[in-house]
């Protein structure tokens, strides 16, 4: 082993010079599947909005297939779906994006995972990224999902987007960095 992994350092306050070119709030473009929007806010330990965060998204296509060489399965009609998005928060700590609902990806035991989005969060003040997931409300597979199972029951709902009054395809999901409703973050 030549050397352990290079240490992480914060993105600092000026990431938007470097990381803007991959910004993409519409992941759905040109791919098939049920479209929906997620909107939310990033809040710090005082409940104050975080205006300088970046949210990155990675998820499977409508057939549950990842656009990646390690996911070997028959190509579906949705394979042109890249699966990646990057969105900065605005002055009010808000972000929103549109994508398609991913299909169930198989889990470690071969059983399906519930549909979910992989999320990375970066910001000034974070010395390394935060990893979390967004799940869907009223999804029967949530009850047997291998990742949700390892999360204490009381905290699971921080990972599940909520329906909004706006319309049935707009969901809300907030990130609380600290506090009673602190979002569950993962080590993987």
């Amino acid at each position: 082993m030549p050397a352990p992994c290079t240490p992480s350092q914060t993105v600092g306050p000026f990431f938007s010079i470097g990381l803007d070119h991959l910004n993409r709030a519409n992941l759905a473009e040109g791919s098939v599947g049920e479209r929906f929007a997620i909107r939310g806010r990033v809040l710090d330990g005082d409940g104050e909005p975080v205006p300088d965060a970046i949210v990155e998204i990675w998820h499977a296509d409508a057939a549950g297939h990842y656009h990646h060489p390690e996911h070997v399965s028959p190509p579906s009609e949705a394979t042109s779906f890249l699966g990646f998005g990057r969105i900065p928060t605005d002055e009010r700590g808000q972000f929103s994006f549109t994508t398609i609902k991913p299909g169930p990806v198989h889990g470690p035991d071969g059983k399906p995972q519930a549909p979910h989005l992989q999320i990375s969060i970066f910001m000034r003040g974070l010395l390394k990224r935060l990893m979390t997931r967004i799940y869907f409300p009223d999804e029967p597979l949530n009850a047997s999902d291998p990742v949700l199972q390892v999360v204490p029951e009381l905290r699971r709902d921080t990972l599940i987007a909520r329906p909004t009054k706006q319309d049935e395809n707009t969901l809300e999901w907030n990130v609380c960095l600290q506090g009673e409703r602190e979002t569950v973050f993962f080590d993987c």
Binding site: D44, G45, D46, E48, V50, W58, H59, A60, Y66, E70, H71, V105, H106, G107, P108, Q113, H116, Q118, M123, R124, G125, L126, L127, L130, R133, P146, V147, V150, V151, R155, L177, Q178, E182, T183, V184, F185, F186, D187, C188
Partner: peptide, 17 residues
């Protein structure tokens, strides 16, 4: 101080994701 999570990270099984 105001941005670091206070709860420990939760270790999850390896999945395709």
């Amino acid at each position: 101080i105001k941005r670091a999570p206070k709860q420990p990270l939760i270790s999850i099984p390896v999945t395709l994701s």
